[in-house]
Simulated assay, not measured.
Amino acid sequence: MSRYIINMVRADGSSGDNKPKADAGRILADRLAFQPVNIKQYKHSRIDQNWLIHSRIKHKLGPLHLTADDVVLVHYPIYTGAKFETYLLEYLQKHGVTTIALVHDLDSLRFNWSIFGDLQNEVNYLNGYDFVIAHNPKMTELLRQTGLTTKVVNLRIFDYLAKRNEVANSSQTKNQVTFAGNLNKAPFLINLQVHNPVKFELYGNIDDASQLNPSLHYHGSVSPTQLAKEMGRGFGLVWDGTSVNGVTGSVGNYLRYNNPYKLSAYLSADMPVIVWEKAAISDFVNRHQIGISVARIDDLTDVLSQLDDAKFQQMVANAQSIGAKVRNGDYLYAAVKQCLKPN
């Protein structure tokens, strides 16, 4: 039995994978002997959506001589167009391999569109796989309600491969909150003002830092190496949208079902987290006691003032335990192992 993972590379030869997909490839190769299959990705065009698609798929997969004993994992979506993804799945089905779809995003939930159209069409496509690895039980429930009939395994949270953070997270920094990433994609920051003793640390790109309230400490865009040195104190915040009074609109709806990769980044740095109480991931946070769920960011001052040192240190210890698993790739490993179990 052979195991393969489909990776897309751009026409110039560079990797088309982001960190979640790249990490998944490393985990599956190192721990479950999955072999990468790199297929060249082109911009959508009439020629690419017809004969060239078949040619590329056959050119890469034909020499593998796939059989019913083999397993192929496909990232979903791989952003090569609906025809490519459909033809790829049809090829795998024709050769009788066991197919696994690892869901990274459901674009019809976060953008109200996807390469397949709406959620119903996404589900119809995913039903062609033998297994679907969904983010969490909330996402699985939604997919089932929309008509998903194939076998589903819950990932629980994404892994995040990184070196262990050596920063000590003590109760002296329990009022410190970090938010890191592309700040232009976090418009709620423009409306955010915090009060002592809460300290808010921002890292990342933003077009106009002058819009930020002076109560926020903006450190600019820093290198991953420098950010790793700064991360690890206090809490990491997982939030989205335009409002500090909850998360609304399509981004709020998406948080009800997805696993934010930002949460895994904080946990990999052994940081407990602060999440929106209606986010799907809040169930995991509360169950493992690795942070706090709040309705509004404005609640932080009161919530943190009531958090005693012992409770914070327990959250840190729990976050360190989960963080070790995240850095080791344990969650994807367990999910794929479940797919590989004999029927």
Rank of each mutant, 00 (worst) to 15 (best):
A310P: 03
T248G: 03
S45T: 15
V244N: 12
A280L: 06
V72C: 03
D70W: 07
S170N: 12
T80I: 04
L106E: 01
V71G: 06
A180M: 08
E277L: 09
K311V: 10
H75N: 14
T80D: 11
L304D: 03
V177M: 05
F84V: 06
K229A: 14
V303C: 02
K337S: 14
S293F: 06
N259V: 06
L192S: 02
S14K: 12
L161I: 15
V275D: 05
M8L: 15
L66F: 09
Y261D: 07
D299V: 01
N124I: 02
P20R: 09
L161R: 07
K138P: 05
A279S: 15
S114D: 05
S305P: 00
N191L: 00
R287I: 01
K138C: 10
Q35N: 13
F179P: 01
I53C: 15
A68F: 03
D302G: 09
N245R: 11
Y87S: 11
E277P: 06
V72D: 01
G117P: 03
L307P: 09
G62A: 13
S221Q: 15
L143M: 13
A334M: 07
L267C: 11
H217V: 12
V251C: 06
L106N: 01
P36T: 12
V167N: 07
K174C: 06
K40Y: 02
G246V: 04
E277D: 15
A134C: 14
Y79Q: 12
F158P: 08
N259W: 02
A280C: 10
Q193V: 03
I190S: 11
K199M: 01
S15D: 07
Y42S: 12
Y42K: 10
D105C: 06
D12R: 01
V72L: 04
G62M: 10
M139H: 02
C339N: 10
H54T: 08
N196T: 11
A11Y: 11
G220A: 12
V285C: 08
A317M: 11
